[in-house]
Design a protein around this nucleic acid. Structure first.
Length: 449
DNA sequence: TGGGGTTAT
DNA sequence: ATAACCC
């Protein structure tokens, strides 16, 4: 593998900082970012596509593409028309079904969790891992087994081996290299990594050398890094809306935000957002790496030019629901809430969705683990009630998106017979022992209950 | 702009 | 239920 790079231009002043081992104030975080993820998954599924310019299409967009395509001028989220014009040889595959991408995405997260359980997902192709504890262990092991045996492989710039913070980050970058090696050996995937002292900096630095490389940020270079962002909208955590409001205040650069009056910013954006983003502008981010665990929700959506009848809507909802039920079945947990989301056509207005949600009736929840067709009809009925609550079907309407979401997921019941929980659990102490449903219990695995 | 996700209010 | 953020 290529060597790890350290992003630091100038010479670093050598001031020894004494931070006690295990000090809570200094963390080692890695951000792992897969290269053009959907395109990589497609090339693994279809090896004959390797070497060709490849784009992944959703509706009329090329949502991502491999580096061969990028060299020929194709960009992410480019129109299919423009992309074909730029690059007539472009091969397109449909990527509207996310199933395979989702599966591979979780394999990556699980692989990273083997290094350290504290892994936070960001989308399908990015993960943060808090390496602080693992680094501490390796440091202790080094001091015990091989005193003064820490070697730097490859060229690392401006590192001070007498600075314990540098050493800890360096060990973090060694772990990052092992993670990328494991991703390649076990899953065939390449990606970037950034190692730094917090999530913001790790994420920013992971993108410095692209593709399939990793970068270590030493604390002395963090100001250079954040000022290399030429606009505040590039700062993760400052989105479309906040950018507009900041621009209205005359703030456009990172330094503008750093030097802007905190009082006025708090008045304009609220204390929470103001304080958070102003700290971000200094490269400060104390947000923890929060283990993602299993997903909080499952959703499926479809967008289209026009849906204007109830029958049409019902057909689309049935399609979304069928896929969702398979996913819920695989997951094992049971959702207790269902939500329907729509987007209405509007000529100008920016992108707004409406939703209605309700609890899933308990008799439907019980049938969720096992099958498909018993649940299909009553669930569609529930969803169509939500639909008619949002859309007056007696009036003309024009929708451009439908989405169904299952959330409020609860683990399967582990209540054991004879315990208080058992008798307080309706599905166990009442329904499953009484009458017509009891035969179903024979088909399902009792240890699941 | 797609087809997903999360948290805060 | 919506709005903001992330990919």
């Amino acid at each position: 593998m290529e060597r790890a790079e350290t992003w630091a231009a100038g010479s670093s002043p050598v001031h020894d900082q004494v931070v006690p081992a295990g000090s809570s104030s200094s963390r080692v975080i890695v951000h792992v970012d897969l290269d053009c993820f959907y395109a990589q998954v497609e090339m693994i599924s279809h090896p004959e596509l390797k070497g060709k310019p490849l784009g992944v299409q959703q509706k009329f967009l090329v949502v991502t593409c491999n580096y061969e395509a990028r060299e020929l001028g194709v960009k992410k989220l480019m129109n299919v028309r423009d992309a074909k014009e730029k690059c007539p040889q472009l091969v397109l595959v449909n990527g509207e079904d996310l199933t395979r991408y989702r599966e591979v995405s979780y394999k990556v997260t699980e692989l990273l969790e083997e290094f350290s359980p504290v892994v936070e997902r960001l989308g399908f192709d990015e993960n943060f891992v808090d390496l602080t504890e693992m680094v501490e262990k390796r440091l202790e092991q080094l001091q015990r087994d091989e005193p003064s045996a820490l070697t730097v492989s490859g060229h690392v710039y401006a590192i001070n081996l007498h600075d314990i913070l540098h050493i800890r980050l360096l060990i973090g970058s060694q772990i990052a290299a092992e993670m990328r090696e494991a991703m390649y050996n076990q899953l065939g995937l390449t990606g970037c990594a950034g190692v730094a002292s917090n999530k913001l900096l790790a994420k920013l630095v992971s993108g410095i050398f692209k593709p399939n490389q990793q970068t270590l940020l030493l604390p002395e270079s963090s100001q250079d890094l954040i000022h290399s962002l030429n606009h505040i909208k590039k700062m993760p955590g400052i989105g479309y809306k906040t950018t507009k409001r900041l621009e209205a205040l005359g703030i456009s650069s990172v330094r503008d935000l750093q030097t802007f009056s905190s009082k006025i910013l708090e008045r304009e954006l609220g204390i929470s957002v103001a304080q958070r983003i102003q700290k971000l502008s200094f490269g400060e981010d104390n947000s923890p790496v929060t283990p993602s665990g299993p997903p909080q929700s499952f959703s499926e959506e479809d967008s289209f030019k026009k849906c204007s009848s109830e029958v049409e809507a019902k057909n689309k909802i049935e399609e979304l629901l069928a896929s969702l039920l398979n996913r819920v079945c695989q997951d094992g947990r049971k959702p207790h809430t269902v939500r329907l989301i729509i987007r209405r056509y509007s000529s100008e207005k920016h992108y707004s969705r409406e939703s209605r949600q309700c609890p899933i009736p308990s008799h439907i929840i019980q049938k969720l683990g096992i099958g498909n067709y018993d649940v299909m009809t009553p669930m569609v009925d529930v969803l169509m009630k939500l639909f008619r609550n949002m859309v007056n079907v007696k009036m003309p309407f024009h929708l451009t998106l439908l989405s169904v979401c299952f959330c409020n997921l609860k683990a399967l019941n582990t209540a054991k017979k004879g315990t208080i929980d058992y008798y307080l659990t309706p599905s166990l102490s009442t329904t499953s022992r009484s009458g017509k449903h009891s035969f179903k219990m024979k088909d399902t695995h009792m240890e699941d209950f």
